[in-house]
Amino acid sequence: MIHLKNVHKRFQKPEGGWFDAVRDTSLHVRAGEIFGLIGFSGAGKSTLLRLINLLERPDSGSVTVDGQPLTALSASALRRARQNIGMVFQQFNLMANRTVAANIAFPLEIAGWQQADIDARVAECLDIVGLADRAQHYPAQLSGGQKQRVGIARALAPRPHVILADEPTSALDPKTTQSILDCLQDINARFGVTVVIVTHEMHVIRSICHRAALLDAGEVVEILSVQDKQVSAQSALAKSLLEVA
């Protein structure tokens, strides 16, 4: 479903010099799985996620999602391809001046849906995330967990095949975290959406991921597999992460 091939991304440091956030990395995420990207701060996991929908363009290497070679697409073709890749953010990034329903409608508006179809789909998505009674509220009137549910509904609205989640629970308390993780797992199970989730918590990997890539200094150290909420790992780094969790 998602193929990253030898992607490399470097950033210019404010004080000069370069920082290699992702080093010549290849990764394959299978259709229908929940795939985790885990590592410490600065390991390159968020950058790697943002390379998947080209929010960051790799300096070298190629990105293919759902058969589409994103790195080779024109600007307008890339915009169309992105409508098939939902994204959920740590800070929610909802539009403050739009109601919950209008936030969820946004990706459908830009994709050119008919108003009647938009209304029906927004209602459906509100039901899926359990916020039907909040449709006409504004984001400022919601709790963090509710905002993230709106974020998930918005990502889900255009029926994407892939959802990218960038630390979706890091701004939330443990109880809300679990309900958001359950929500993502539910969406994956019901609709077969492939989910890639960035986290620094082994708990997240254990509770919903099928597999995960452990990252360190911009490279994949190990691919972890999860069976019955047990993570099997070989590397010392993975073992140390499992111990703290």
């Binding site: 890339l78 169309r80 992105r82 409508q83 990034n93 539009m95 990706p107 830009i110 990218l164």
Partner: peptide, 23 residues
């Protein structure tokens, strides 16, 4: 991040200006 979210959803520059920035 709000502008970035719109970019990630495939919004065009014109849509970002009118529907996100100005609004």
């Amino acid at each position: 991040g709000v502008v970035e979210a719109a970019e990630a959803m495939g919004a065009s520059p014109a849509q970002i200006i009118v529907k996100v920035l100005i609004n």
